[in-house]
Design a binder for these strands. Structure first.
Lengths: 131, 131
DNA sequence: ACGGGTGTCCTATCGAGCTAGGACACCGGG
DNA sequence: CCCGGTGTCCTAGCTCGATAGGACACCCGT
């Protein structure tokens, strides 16, 4: 699992990280029972404070996505798949709707929006092949 | 011109407001020479602090989008249309690309993304007719 | 039993951004 | 000329979240 923080994004790092975990579970890249990186190791890797990682893990645990085993580590919870699929679906819908509303508000045609998404998709595909 | 602040959005109010002005200019809803609402009036209308509106206006002026006439008001600058079109286009592209990347990361197919955008578009159309 | 790794918690500090309230200079109509 | 409306600026305080550094309890391999 590869996590990363976009410091230019307006959302705080702790939320970005939590979202990435939800998305990873929803897509199956993380499965129930999988162990997550340790608070300290991940914090060093993505250059944020251990407390910030800890906050994300704590929020996700309260949400039922993660399970903490004291002295051992954090693991993806059993029922996480369903709830993450729902949460991810809702979140993505909201973000797409917001972006679409902005595009229309800026005077773009719906065709232009589709074109941008299509082009962006080609870019994404190429990038994931390359990596 | 109708402005509004989404307090749930992660972007700060001053940026939301500035973006809305850029989009309005880019789409032609605001034309060069048009007067903008006064700092105090708009602040009261959208329930934020006058200083916050002032900050947006100041940023937009430094960007060349607005023109201040002391003791009179703020007006859309002459060359605003072109720069706003460019800025809005870039901004929308970036937001759409980010939302798309999230959707794909959450395991959605590109077809599903198009479907969501299409549905969202129908909703938007209906809403703008209603208002 | 011990030591290293784990999550958890605590206090303190810092920075960004909004809020609050006031002060000032400017313009224009009455 | 006056006075209300305008943009601009200033200081102060507040909230939120990240940062910093440390302390503690737990688990497990050695």
């Amino acid at each position: 699992m590869r996590f990363q923080i976009d410091s230019r994004s307006p959302s705080p790092p702790s939320e970005q990280l939590a979202d990435q975990v939800r998305f990873a579970v929803a897509s199956g890249r993380l499965a129930p029972g999988d162990r997550l990186p340790s608070v300290r190791a991940l914090a060093e890797e993505i250059r944020i404070n251990p407390n910030t990682v800890s906050r994300s893990w704590r929020d996700l645990e309260r949400e039922g996505v993660l399970e903490s085993r004291r002295g051992d580590g954090m693991f993806v919870a059993a029922g996480a798949l369903k709830s993450c699929r729902a949460a991810a679906d809702a979140l993505v819908k909201e973000r797409l709707a917001r972006a679409l509303a902005e595009a229309l508000g800026a005077g773009m045609s719906i065709e232009r929006v589709f074109e941008i998404v299509r082009n962006s998709y080609s870019g994404e595909k190429g990038r994931s092949k390359a990596s």
